[in-house]
């Protein structure tokens, strides 16, 4: 993989990979680090990513691998520099209609915040597939390939994560 390939990868998938790294790493410093290391590792692997393969899934799987291998490093940094709040207040228009009131938007924001906080507390076994599915927008098949687990297990974990988040929402 040469510089040109990396440039294209950063341009095409940088946002998706960065968003995923942010969720995984929980703070911006760790996310920046993980993001950089992901692309550098992709270069190191030297794999030729052709049009028929899935570059985004490939990059996300690298990020997951790096995260798992360097968890201690990131945890140590988290203790030294407490995480800052990530501003994620954008409300998707898909959930709002012309008749959505300001109060409903506030409620929606709060529900999103509850979900984010609850998702963050999940064990990595559930959290990682969850973020791969919703944040990185990967298919179940790609998640299964990236994590080297059966698709049934991916679906199982997503189901369990959804169930927990639903229960948290209902409790709130």
């Amino acid at each position: 993989m040469d510089n040109m390939d990396i440039d294209s990868l950063v341009m095409l998938y940088g946002k998706a990979v960065y968003g995923f790294c942010l969720k995984l790493a929980r703070n911006r410093d760790n996310a920046d680090d993980l993001y950089q290391e992901t692309f550098l590792k992709a270069l190191e692997l030297g794999a030729k990513i052709d049009k028929s393969s899935n570059p985004k899934a490939f990059l996300i799987s690298i990020a997951v691998g790096l995260w798992k291998n360097n968890r201690r490093k990131y945890a140590r940094r988290q203790r030294i520099a407490p995480e800052g709040e990530l501003n994620e207040e954008v409300v998707n228009s898909a959930l709002c209609t012309n008749t959505t009131t300001p109060e409903e938007i506030v409620i929606l924001r709060e529900r999103c915040a509850v979900i984010r906080a609850a998702a963050d507390k999940l064990n990595d076994r559930l959290r990682i597939p969850l973020y791969m599915y919703y944040t990185a927008e990967m298919s179940v098949e790609d998640i299964a390939s990236a994590l080297r687990i059966p698709q049934g297990t991916v679906k199982s974990r997503l189901h369990k994560a959804r169930k927990i988040l639903k229960e948290v929402l209902e409790a709130n």
Partner: peptide, 13 residues
């Protein structure tokens, strides 16, 4: 839809 909304990211590097 709620999960998609809450867990998607608008952040950019």
């Amino acid at each position: 839809q709620l999960l998609t909304q809450a867990l998607s990211s608008t952040e950019e590097p």
